[in-house]
Design a protein around this nucleic acid. Structure first.
Lengths: 231, 231
DNA sequence: TTCTTGTCACCTAGGTGTTAATAT
DNA sequence: ATATTAACACCTAGGTGACAAGAA
């Protein structure tokens, strides 16, 4: 069995509609996909990998807020279907760089996919995961038992196990669309500390799930709740 | 067979008498021990590891230069035997973190031991290599073939191969003793760039073996050649 | 108008020798 | 006198969102 790490943080992002930046050079995910694994054979070899499947066949676009009141005249509020998905990207797979390794090795600490990078470059030759911007994806985690038997291909089915955590779904974007996502990233990603404007001490040390994310009063006051948009 | 990388740099250090810093927290080696490997079975598993053996049973001390002429009144010039070695340190071993891996994996790129750290802390619990300061050591590189046979212990001898490069010998120190070693480290280690005082562009790009190391004229003028000391 | 790209200041994380203080 | 330690400034290396300019 597999347990998602930082589930509370994933939930918080998922509630707002997680966005992940894709760039030509490749961008890491935040939160990072990390799991604790249980129940492996300590002496057997396993490969760990991830892939990403489209959640639907839709392309998204940003809803423009045309409210005339100045204080609401910022940007946008929620997602709108913009048509059929773009042609599928090469369905790449990311092997955890420690693969293959013994079950004991995998289980004795958190397995972190922090080397995994997302790109929108269809011609990428760095082995990064290629995604279409403005499309939604579901990360999947796979465990492959390295079967020592000579005819191991026959048992491919039973040596393969997939785990899906719906709270890790996200929209690939080239720039953040939802300002609250931006603020939550800034508040919780150590590498974005330079953009914080309050309570630098309080995160993530004293963070309790359900507590308000650390945003400036300004950020907190606007963009109240994203609600489904009807055309 | 195994080929030492950066041999020219190792030779240059060795000619001056290589010193490696040891600290409580652990210090990397510079130059880093790196090798190219040939002739493995691409499909077989191997473990790669290093250890360090005392070159002799001597303890060293610095020769004090008592020359009264001011311009030579700096510090020291060469090494002197100071007595029998201190009690042996725990003979630790450093496994390359990618171990075990297939021969094909090891051979397709340079194998670098840049995670290896040296410490003088006898109680170290970070798995670092423990050495006595002011003692000389010979790094050794070992390749272990992971024998799939059930009674593999019987073949331990033939599945084990050791490589020694004498030019990688060094004296463990807590602070540099030979100023020319300091200067060569500063000139060739990118992390010490902040201490360079000339030709910042010229190293190591245009470095030819045998060329003078980049030192300030001041450093070059003093400490001319270390010669063996007789008591 | 909407989306993408490249550059940037500002971070994290950690590897350098220097230096002054301390230990032996 | 010699050896060790700890704090420090200055690097490498690379992960952030902001922003302005460009592309579709």
């Amino acid at each position: 069995s597999v347990q998602l790490e930082m589930k509370a943080l994933w939930d918080e992002f998922n509630q707002l509609g997680t966005e992940m930046i894709v760039t030509k050079a490749g961008r890491r995910m935040f939160p990072t996909f990390q799991v604790k694994i249980f129940g492996m054979d300590p002496m057997a070899d396993y490969m760990l990998l991830m892939d990403f499947v489209p959640v639907d066949d839709k392309r998204y676009r940003q809803v423009t807020n045309t409210c005339p009141v100045p204080r609401y005249a910022f940007h946008s509020s929620s997602w709108l279907v913009a048509g059929k998905a773009d042609p599928a990207t090469p369905g790449r797979v990311h092997y955890h760089p420690d693969s293959p390794a013994k079950g004991a090795q995998w289980m004795k600490q958190i397995v972190s996919f922090d080397k995994l990078k997302l790109t929108n470059n269809l011609l990428d030759d760095n082995g990064h995961i290629i995604l279409n911007s403005m499309h939604r994806y579901q990360p999947r985690f796979h465990v492959v038992y390295v079967d020592p038997r000579k005819d191991s291909e026959k048992y491919a089915e039973e040596n393969f196990k997939t785990f899906v955590f719906e709270e890790t779904r996200f929209t690939a974007v080239t720039a953040y669309q939802n300002h609250r996502i931006t603020q939550l990233k800034i508040a919780s990603n150590p590498f974005a500390k330079g953009f914080r404007d309050c309570d630098p001490e309080d995160w993530p040390r004293n963070h309790r799930p359900g507590a308000l994310p650390l945003m400036s009063a300004f950020a907190r006051s606007r963009n109240p709740v994203s609600s489904p948009a009807h055309q």
